[in-house]
């Protein structure tokens, strides 16, 4: 009976056509980094939201709908990560003092532990903006990453930069399509406060030297309001208000290798505009561990004594273990 049932069931199962994400970039042949974003322990609502925002940020190479259970431990994630080719973990946790973000490379580590001093959700940021922007294909491509201020020569900062550079797929300058560069993640290290500002922007290109009216006209395809104009030519010649004031400086303009949409032509210059999409975080690097959430402490913000004592403890442990082993043998 059971066998029949099984057969029947098989019939019912609709063959799921899985669109397998490539684990290797076809053009460069590099391994595409993938990530899991999850949390450890019980999280309040806002942090859960932050987790969701981070997942969206890590798109497309992340598990957007990763289901977690209370009893899942790190090993579970690690076990899943192997076959799926997940290379990075972003782990949110929370103590009474603050939320923490751990960025770890699987399976061996290292693990960077950040204290989240302040964070704003994507929702908050959208609310604070007059016109929040979210084009459809915003999350279809991986973001660029800009690291700034990390070049102080300190070892742990170097490690941080490497970590974050490798968290997103690398871009090949010769073949990349600029239309796929829609987002950017900025990590700015502040030397004085030792805090890292984590921002997430969307990239928008605008033609330079065109008045706002004409730009809008081209973009929207709507018949402009000409009631107040004497002549049609006024529409072109009269400069709209406000457009000149927000005109950008030279440094923010680029010329494109190919046309980008209807508005941005290769022949004209375009201005780069960034608009924040969140989440926003202020991080402080607290600790770097060798392994995945374990192992020796490479760097610790709160003094070396702590680290030393830990190392001592570890050594002691090792010794004890050795002794035990000796005894066993």
């Amino acid at each position: 009976m059971a066998r029949f049932r099984n057969k029947k069931r098989k019939d019912f199962v609709k063959p799921v056509v899985k669109k397998q994400q490539p684990s290797v970039d076809h053009i460069t042949g590099d391994k595409i980094p993938k990530s899991f974003v999850f949390s450890r322990g019980k999280m309040p609502g806002s942090l859960r939201q932050l987790q969701m925002d981070l997942r969206k940020l890590m798109l497309p190479y992340t598990a957007l709908k990763l289901k977690e259970k209370k009893r899942n431990n790190l090993k579970d994630y690690l076990n899943v990560a192997g076959p799926m080719g997940v290379t990075h973990f972003l782990i949110l946790s929370k103590t009474e003092t603050a939320p923490y973000l751990r960025v770890a490379r699987t399976p061996q580590g290292p693990t960077l532990t950040f204290k989240v001093h302040e964070y704003s959700l994507a929702v908050d940021i959208a609310q604070s903006q007059l016109r929040p922007r979210c084009p459809q294909d915003l999350f279809k491509n991986a973001p660029l990453i800009v690291l700034s201020g990390f070049g102080t020569g300190e070892q742990h900062l170097k490690l941080t930069t490497i970590m974050f550079q490798n968290i997103f797929p690398a871009i090949d300058i010769n073949t990349v399509k600029l239309s796929s560069c829609q987002r950017i993640v900025l990590l700015n290290y502040n030397k004085e406060t030792k805090l890292i500002d984590f921002r997430h922007y969307s990239i928008r290109l605008q033609p330079v030297g065109v008045s706002r009216r004409i730009r809008k006209f081209v973009q929207n395809h709507q018949v402009p309001d000409l009631r107040r104009l004497q002549d049609v030519s006024d529409f072109v010649t009269k400069a709209g208000y406000g457009s000149e004031s927000e005109m950008d400086d030279e440094a923010a303009t680029v010329s494109l290798p190919s046309d980008l949409g209807r508005v941005n032509r290769a022949s004209t210059k375009s201005a780069v505009k960034l608009q924040e999409i969140g989440p926003r975080m202020t991080l402080q690097l607290i600790k770097i561990e060798e392994g995945l959430c374990s192992g020796g402490v490479i760097f610790s913000e709160y003094g070396n004594g702590d680290e030393k004592s830990k190392q001592d403890a570890r050594e002691e442990n090792n010794e004890e273990e050795e002794e035990e082993e000796m005894e066993e043998t």
Partner: peptide, 28 residues
């Protein structure tokens, strides 16, 4: 911060910040 992201870091020109949106686009 937006400026840094678009144009790169001018305060520390020698640092890794050399990469920014504008620079990338121009390089591309």
């Amino acid at each position: 911060l937006i400026g840094v992201a678009t144009k790169g870091d001018f305060q520390f020109p020698m640092c890794i910040a050399g990469l920014s949106v504008v620079k990338l686009f121009n390089a591309v």
